[in-house]
Simulated scan of single mutants.
Amino acid sequence: MTEIVLFHSVLGLRPGVLETAEQWRAAGHAVHVPDLYGGAVFDGYDEAFEFLDKYGGQGELLRRTDAAVDGVRPGVVYAGYSNGVISVVHLVTSRPGALGALSFHGSVPVRAVGAELWPSSVPVQVHEAELDPFREDDANREFAETVSASGASYHYYGYPGVSAHLFADSSLTSEYDRQAAETMHGRALEFIAACEDRGR
């Protein structure tokens, strides 16, 4: 069993994220799914980013991230959907003991959370739609270079022909791509299993 903390996207704790958590629990893992928005959930990105700005932006997001893992033991895998990757990068670079990092729907440079280095002991898996409208190649490249320079394992998976951002969120009918999502979750479960082996 691996302990995992899964962070939601800018759209809030949607049912699709909870479904991912249930899939991982069914595979025998313990999964924490913090609600950093206090129940607020959105269907559109504009209103979600407006909400994020009003409640304090990234600074408040990271404060709530730290509060969410207070009491969670070291030796966990951090995972995040889209904007939740910011929480993942923050915790891996500021909280010792992570077993791995799963970055769904993009990645961010470590400097985005005020860090400089990536721990050499924390492997990374990044998943992103090839035609993601929010894709930032420079950010992806910088993150990849930082992780690789540390000596940590880094794997990037692009999903050819997929144009939706949150393609793995089954509750977003306009974006969900079942085949890509199933492939992503299969790869993620293999990664989690490998992290579990390393943590023994």
Rank of each mutant, 00 (worst) to 15 (best):
I4A: 09
V5G: 08
S9G: 12
S9H: 12
S9E: 14
L11V: 02
L11Y: 07
G12Y: 05
G16D: 07
G16S: 10
G16W: 06
V17E: 12
L18T: 05
A21W: 03
W24K: 12
R25D: 05
A26K: 13
A26D: 08
H29I: 02
V31Q: 11
H32I: 03
H32R: 13
H32W: 01
P34T: 04
D35N: 07
L36N: 12
G39E: 00
A40K: 14
F42W: 00
F42C: 03
D43T: 10
G44Q: 12
D46N: 10
E47N: 11
E50T: 08
F51R: 14
L52T: 00
Y55E: 15
G56K: 09
G57T: 00
G57F: 04
Q58T: 04
E60N: 10
E60D: 11
L61K: 12
L61H: 15
L62Y: 06
R63S: 09
R63C: 01
R63K: 14
R64W: 02
R64P: 03
A67I: 00
A68Q: 11
G71E: 13
V72K: 15
R73F: 01
V76T: 06
V77K: 15
Y78D: 07
Y78A: 11
Y78G: 08
G80A: 11
G80W: 05
G80S: 12
Y81F: 10
S82M: 06
N83G: 06
G84S: 13
V88H: 14
V89F: 02
H90V: 04
L91M: 10
V92N: 09
S94G: 08
S94H: 15
R95A: 04
P96L: 10
L99I: 00
L102K: 10
S103Y: 05
F104N: 12
F104T: 09
H105N: 13
H105F: 02
G106T: 02
G106Y: 05
S107N: 11
A112S: 14
G114E: 04
L117N: 12
W118I: 03
P119F: 07
P119A: 10
P119Q: 13
S120G: 09
S120I: 03
A129H: 04
A129K: 09
F134N: 10
F134D: 08
R135I: 00
E136N: 14
D138M: 02
N140S: 12
N140D: 09
R141P: 01
R141G: 04
F143G: 07
E145C: 08
V147E: 13
S148W: 00
A149S: 15
A152Y: 06
A152K: 14
Y159R: 14
V162F: 05
S163F: 00
S163G: 01
A164K: 05
H165F: 06
L166R: 09
F167E: 03
S170H: 09
S171P: 06
S174P: 04
E175Q: 15
Y176H: 15
D177K: 14
Q179E: 15
A181D: 07
E182Q: 14
T183C: 09
M184A: 13
H185V: 00
G186P: 01
G186N: 04
A188Q: 06
L189C: 00
L189A: 12
I192P: 04
A193F: 01
E196D: 06
R198Y: 02
R198Q: 13
